[in-house]
Design a binder for these strands. Structure first.
Lengths: 138, 138
DNA sequence: TGTTTTCTGCCAATAATTAGCATGTGGGAA
DNA sequence: TTCCCACATGCTAATTATTGGCAGAAAACA
């Protein structure tokens, strides 16, 4: 598994497992909370360093949403987030959407070699668009 | 111009002008540097507050690139950045690319009402992909 | 102009992230 | 299997980026 150039330590194994098993994205802090149960002495700085190692190895992707600290999640090279300005929730669209966006980009990227595609959409989710009509800013 | 709900002050006018005239994106700090010539007493916190006001009014868009502090630039609702892992430079693809990506998304966004589309691509620019072949990580 | 609302300067605080250093450990070589 | 060394970790402290509180100043609108 991490015979991809990353030295395996208990810390990294746990951190990696949290990301893979949940499939969700977490801040460094949230990862820390979840791993502390199993490894009580774990330091937050170690979490940051481990996430960075996994990221460099291409195992973890990092997203910076409009608010709050960075989010980390396992793997995906194509990475769309829909952030609702009304309720603040984050949605993941159908993977097909990401694939099509990738194509649109790759077709004419002027020689740029695409490795990771991060898409962050601000707007209103179906629910918030329906009711509160406009006000927004959560 | 800012009769769009934003009270006009000299500070805001200068900040806005820096963004519009250059057409580039800057960090709050960079904006500060550029406006300090004209307004020596200007505080960085004021720059942050002004940018936030302009952003809320829809005049300024904010991007969080993979590294470094937030970037602000005038206007664009659709907003693709290509960040080269080799040299760190940031490229803006042809607007047409952004438009097609928007379409790909909008066609199947599950009722999500899109307001701003931020696209951040990591990879290698033509130049870096050509020579150093792979190493990367600037 | 007068009044009200809102910015702004100034200063301090918080949040997020990184750095330094001594010790410990994973994992290939012997 | 054991040894060795580069690299990871714990701990602590520093740095960056960003936000908050408050009193005086200055927009907008009547």
């Amino acid at each position: 598994m991490q015979e991809r150039g990353v030295r395996v330590t208990p810390q990294r194994a746990h951190i990696w497992r949290v990301l893979v098993e949940s499939g969700e994205h977490f801040t460094a802090d949230e990862v820390w909370e979840r791993v502390k149960n199993a490894l009580p002495g774990l330091e937050l700085s170690t979490v940051y360093r481990s996430l960075e190692a996994l990221r460099t190895a291409g195992l973890v992707a990092e997203s910076r949403l409009p608010e709050g600290p960075r989010m980390f999640e396992a793997r995906p090279r194509i990475h769309p987030h829909l952030v609702c300005d009304g309720c603040g929730r984050i949605f993941h669209p159908d993977p097909e959407v990401g694939r099509r966006m990738f194509e649109a980009l790759d077709a004419d990227s002027g020689g740029f070699e695409v490795r990771e595609l991060h898409v962050m959409v601000r707007g209103l989710c179906a629910e918030c668009a329906g009711q509160g009509k406009d006000k927004a800013e959560s």
